[in-house]
């Protein structure tokens, strides 16, 4: 994928009708993309009586912070009323080890596959590649059985294992594609100097892998945080990630719906990936390009 450079489109001619049209389109599109975020924010600061009046796009007239504290500490999922804060901790407990392990394993795979050409390497690559595209539904039931056999089903290590398993294809592809571009002569020189598999990996490859490690971290942190399906099935009652907690809070069938609390909880859940997005800027786009698994 080409690195982004300066815009190279046609030269702008003064402020013609077409220039105005271009800006009108862009502003309109921007409004469309921002609208849901705006609605989330204003709803979360309104009182329920105000929401009942039905001005979903209006600014709050009776400004309140109560929905936020309720969402954080008291929102109910069924009979549990501990708020979304439980899910935050769970999500971090799942995300940090799962992201670290899958990145490490992906880096080892990419390095081994591109430089050492081990027996069966092509098979590993083919299976992982295909595995990245196949719907998860095919793996779920046997995986539940296998994990309960080794007492990992509905545990924290269990859900981490699942994330490592399904993060492996993209991580392996990412690092393989990165290491393939590293000059083989560099590797050969390290070999002549007597470097073994792990020496070369930790002392030569990892120090060279800065950019791709950042991209991998962005992909895994946002991907694992945003996961719903695996958390729902494998995490167990005590370790439900934030996305599952959020859906339970919002789509709970008991009681009247507190839309303001729901929106506050929704923003809280979206916060971590949004921070990653805004802090990482162009790296996020690189992550997309890399996640596009171009060979």
């Amino acid at each position: 994928m080409t690195a982004e450079t300066q815009p190279r489109g046609r030269k702008p001619r003064r402020l013609t009708a077409s220039r105005i049209g271009i800006y009108a389109f862009l502003v309109f599109a921007a409004a469309f993309f921002l609208l849901p975020f705006y609605v989330m924010i204003v709803t979360s600061f309104k009182t329920m009586p105000e929401i009942q009046q039905g001005n979903i796009f209006g600014l709050p007239t009776d400004f309140t912070l109560k929905p936020w504290s309720t969402a954080w500490a008291h929102a109910c999922t069924g009979v549990n009323c501990e708020g979304i804060r439980v899910g935050v901790l769970n999500s971090f407990e799942i995300m940090i080890p799962a992201a670290t392990l899958s990145i490490l394993l992906g880096a080892i795979n990419g390095y081994a596959l591109s430089f050492w050409r081990p027996r069966g390497g092509n098979l590993i690559f083919a299976v992982l590649l295909l595995g990245a595209f196949i719907p998860y539904q095919v793996y779920l039931y046997p995986l539940v059985r296998m994990l309960s056999k080794v007492s990992l089903y509905n545990t924290l290590p269990g859900i981490i294992t699942v994330h490592v398993i399904f993060g492996l294809p993209v991580m392996t592809l990412l690092f393989r594609n990165y290491y393939v571009a590293v000059p083989v002569d560099l590797f050969k020189a390290a070999r002549i100097d007597g470097g073994g598999f792990w020496t070369i990996f930790f002392q030569l490859m990892i120090p060279m892998s800065g950019p791709i490690l950042v991209v991998a971290a962005i992909l895994q942190v946002t991907g694992i945080w945003n996961d719903f399906l695996f958390g729902l099935i494998f995490a167990g009652r005590d370790h439900l990630p934030m996305t599952v907690e959020l859906n339970n809070i919002v789509n709970t069938t008991t009681g009247t719906k507190a839309y303001n609390v729901n929106m506050a909880a929704t923003i809280l859940t979206a916060l971590v990936p949004l921070i990653v997005y805004f802090v990482s800027g162009r790296w996020f786009v690189r992550g997309i390009a890399a996640g596009a698994v171009k060979g």
Partner: peptide, 18 residues
């Protein structure tokens, strides 16, 4: 691009509300 950073759960809940 920012919506792409958010989960389908968040997306679904916001639009269901709107």
């Amino acid at each position: 691009l920012y919506p792409y950073a958010m989960s389908f759960i968040v997306t679904g809940l916001v639009w269901a509300w709107i």
